[in-house]
């Protein structure tokens, strides 16, 4: 694979900026049926909790203009099952292993990091999910409050040397404040953005389409919001940004990088075209060759008016 796609997210070197976004690739196993995962920069695991979770009941997906709402609710097999059954698979895939860590309280996150830290030889970074909108406690509740973000990040910082990437929610007034809080707590990077909270209603029954009532909006429709947030944070942060939200082709990747992202996560578009990262990778290589550049040189090159 071309070295032109090499990027760094802090101390983490990735052979490509393409990371599969948490919650849209499970642990990679299913997608290995579709393409060779070693082309990827990384895989971010399904959001994990200490105990297994069945997730939310009923209808979990609703289509929207250029995207979808989901309310899966962190269904996952639990971190212990993951370590025994999926971590080795991820490590052997050849992509960097990003483990997405979720919880309902500070204690949950501490438990999770303590449980994962002994397996650090198989993990490249922990993505701390302070942004899932589909659970009643934790995640977005913590991730909406800069003080709580700083407090939890600094607690986790003391527990591990693994890179800590804090995945933030766009459902806040000032994304710079939450990103700066993560940085102040000792984060190695921030991941921007998780889904936007939304609702759809069945006009016949007057009930929300999703049984959870609300869900997280993702897909190409949210890309401008994510780009804006990456660009805003790039102006104030010293730590790297992983961009995420609505990427569907190589030009979207470049747009995120110009805005300030060092790497990107692709998710919802892969639900429609599972092998999309193969095309995006090839297109990015061609773009770099045609323009005589290394992709990482694009990061933060935005020329504002």
């Amino acid at each position: 694979m071309s070295k032109l796609l090499n990027v760094n997210v802090g101390s983490v070197n990735l052979k490509s900026p393409i990371i599969l976004a948490s919650g849209t690739c499970n642990f990679g196993r299913e997608l290995a049926e579709y393409y060779d995962l070693s082309i990827l920069g990384g895989i971010s695991s399904k959001g994990l909790t200490i105990k297994p979770r069945n997730g939310n009941p009923g209808v979990r997906v609703a289509e929207c203009a250029s995207g979808m709402l989901n309310s899966v609710g962190l269904q996952n097999p639990g971190v212990h099952y993951f370590i025994e059954n999926d971590l080795d698979f991820m490590k052997e895939s050849g992509a960097a292993v990003i483990v997405n860590v979720a919880g309902h309280s500070f204690e949950d996150y501490i438990d999770m990091v303590t449980t994962l830290d002994p397996h650090k030889d198989k993990i490249d970074a922990l993505e701390i999910n302070l942004s899932c909108p589909n659970v009643k406690a934790g995640c977005m509740t913590i991730g909406s409050d800069p003080e709580a973000i700083k407090a939890i990040t600094s607690k986790l910082r003391r527990l591990t040397d693994l890179p800590l990437w804090i995945k933030l929610t766009p459902n806040v007034t000032d994304i710079k404040a939450t990103a700066l809080a993560a940085q102040a707590g000792g984060a190695d990077a921030v991941v921007l953005i998780n889904t936007l909270m939304g609702m759809r209603i069945d006009i016949r029954t007057r009930r929300p389409v999703l049984t959870n009532n609300t869900g997280g909006y993702s897909g190409p429709a949210v890309k401008p919001v994510a780009i804006r947030m990456v660009a805003e944070c790039a102006q104030v942060l010293d730590i790297p940004i992983v961009g995420c939200g609505g990427i569907a082709d190589y030009k979207d990747v470049i747009e995120f990088m110009i805005a300030g992202a060092s790497a990107v996560e692709i998710g919802t578009a892969c639900l429609v075209h599972p092998a999309l990262p193969v095309d995006i990778t090839a297109d990015l290589e061609k773009y770099c060759e045609d323009n005589g550049i290394e992709l990482k040189d694009l990061t933060g090159t935005l020329q504002r008016w």
């Binding site: 919650g23 849209t24 690739c25 499970n26 299913e30 997608l31 579709y34 399904k46 997730g55 209808v59 979990r60 997906v61 609703a62 979808m68 989901n70 899966v72 269904q75 892969c270 639900l271 429609v272 599972p274």
Partner: peptide, 15 residues
Amino acid sequence: EQRMACGAGICLCCT
């Protein structure tokens, strides 16, 4: 049958 997104087993929407 369930409302489905990906069909490929990666989104966990159609449980």
